[in-house]
Design a binder for these strands. Structure first.
Length: 455
RNA sequence: GUGGGUAUAGCGUAGUUGGCUAACGCGUCGGAUUGUGGUUCCGAAGAUCGUGGGUUCGAGUCCCAUUACCCACCCCA
């Protein structure tokens, strides 16, 4: 039989055990933080009927979605976690308590060209709040506060959450008489930082047919910078000319005020008029996060307010606001930069029992006692040389090996070896469990990320 | 989807203007006598040089095609 060469599709991340453990530690940390804010942890199907996921129709989603036929069914893999949430809420609206707060950590699929930090299968860690009819603006302020909390708990410090408001932008473009092309303009303006004002100016005029005056107005609006208070003050100068703009300005102001109340330091969030990205269902507040040391890899976390997403599934108004961490991308970058905390390199077990006698019953008994005491324990059942058993313990990275030979069994004890120091002690099962617990306290509380501090 | 680049053992690479049995590091496996790993030393396995065709006495090296991957664009977590 010919051997099929094993391979993993590009754009799909597959990790070796130690890296997987670090990834899981990040997932666990995120779950803990999300839970602190009162979110229900939801899981929805990876696959949905195509007409559900594509209800909105058109755009990038349609181009990038994995879609296929199975029998007579037209199926698609979820493109994000937000659209399935909209479906879920619309479908179960009568059984849910609103505001409905849910978090979800799961894989999503996008059929695009893979690139560095850009995957075709990746994890998103989402939190969303869906309101019934109305949803208070304070929810828009709480989202980035949670992200701030989560990133901090992960061990990150060098990041900024950038905030903007689509109503503000749409209102501004309406003032210029550019309502129809607002989406295309936003996309161009978003590139300001990347390609510079001259090129954006040229593109606005040549590609979109704007007048020099219009392009100039846009660029001078986007040039508004400074502290959040400065930017908001400058925006006041535009007030009174467009209702949508005024509303957007009020919302943005409210988000900024309340963020401070949630304990987010001013340095970690920034009003930035150029950001408008994210999917096109956003209607108000939008967020984008940037890692200060790796601006080139794109936002590891974005989101915003979407007031109309459920309209494809129900007559009812179900506005939402949410944010999504691109976990796979975040992990990839941190790994590439060597920032994953080695303290969190967790082994599959804390103790590996090495039976030295033919009779493995004492080993099983010891394992049972250790497990009862809450120690993660594995037994090495295979018949190998002692040397090889030790080598296995070393490769797994277990902090302790428990050697169980005739002498130990005779005394009703076990030789517990600390793999890091090489020190070995003859202990009872209870004593061994205590020693393990005592030694591992620090390790469990370490953050998954060890960020280098800039000098 | 558009443009450019690259394809040599599990991974990372070397391979001169085409010339003998394709080299190196890491990793893997085995050994350095009996119940002690991570260091060291010795040894072994592992590649029809992405695939198919062509030029040539001769191709990993040149040409064409094809596939995969990488980079940029698009878009985005």
């Amino acid at each position: 039989m010919p051997i099929q060469k094993p391979r993993t599709l590009s754009g799909f991340m597959e990790l070796l055990p130690q890296k997987q453990a670090l990834f899981d530690a990040m997932v666990e940390t995120l779950r803990e933080v999300y839970a602190l804010y009162g979110f229900f942890d939801l899981d929805t199907p990876l696959m949905e009927a195509s007409e559900v996921l594509l209800a909105k129709g058109g755009g990038e989603t349609e181009k990038q979605i994995y879609r296929f036929q199975k029998g007579d069914n037209d199926l698609s893999l979820r493109f994000d976690l937000t659209v399935p949430l909209a479906k879920y809420v619309a479908l179960h609206q009568n059984e849910l308590a609103f505001p409905f707060r849910r978090c979800q950590i799961g894989k999503v699929y996008r059929g695009e060209r893979a690139q560095r930090g850009r995957f075709r299968e990746f994890y998103q860690a989402d939190i969303d709040v869906i309101g019934d009819g109305k949803l208070d603006i304070l929810n828009d302020a709480e989202m980035p506060a949670i992200i701030h909390h989560a990133f901090t708990r992960l061990g990150l410090t060098r990041f900024v959450i950038r905030v903007n408001n689509r109503k503000l932008l749409n209102g501004f473009y309406a003032m210029l008489g550019l309502t129809d092309s607002a989406g295309e303009i936003m996309r161009l303006v978003d590139k300001l930082e990347k390609i510079g004002p001259e090129k954006v100016d040229a593109a606005l005029r040549e590609d979109l047919g704007l007048s020099p005056a219009q392009a100039g107005d846009i660029l001078s609006f986007m040039a508004i910078q400074g502290s959040n208070a400065d930017v908001l003050a400058a925006l006041e100068g535009y007030r009174g000319r467009d209702g949508t703009f005024d509303q957007g300005l009020d919302e943005l102001g409210a988000v900024c005020r309340h963020l401070a109340a949630f304990g987010v330091p001013e340095a970690r969030f920034q009003v930035d008029l150029t950001i408008a990205r994210g999917l096109d269902y956003y209607t108000g507040t939008v967020y984008e996060t940037r890692l200060l040391d790796y601006p080139e890899i794109g936002s590891p976390c974005s989101g915003g307010r979407y007031d109309n997403l459920a309209e494809y599934y129900t007559e009812k108004q179900l506005p939402g606001v949410g944010i999504s961490i691109g976990l796979t991308r975040l992990f990839y970058v941190l790994d590439e930069q060597g920032l994953l905390s080695p303290e969190r390199l967790t082994a599959p077990a804390e103790v590996l029992i090495l039976p030295m006698t033919g009779d493995q019953a004492p080993a099983v008994e010891l394992a049972t006692a250790l497990r009862a005491a809450g120690v993660r324990t594995q037994i090495y059942f295979e018949e190998k040389k002692f040397k090889q058993k030790m080598a296995y313990a070393d490769k797994l990275g277990v902090p302790f090996a428990a050697i169980l030979g005739e002498e130990e069994i005779a005394q009703g004890k076990v030789a517990l070896k600390d793999m890091a120091t090489g020190a070995q002690e003859l202990l009872t099962a209870q004593q061994a469990a205590q020693a393990v617990h005592a030694a591992l306290v620090d390790r469990r509380s370490a953050a998954p990320i060890r960020e280098r501090k800039p000098d």
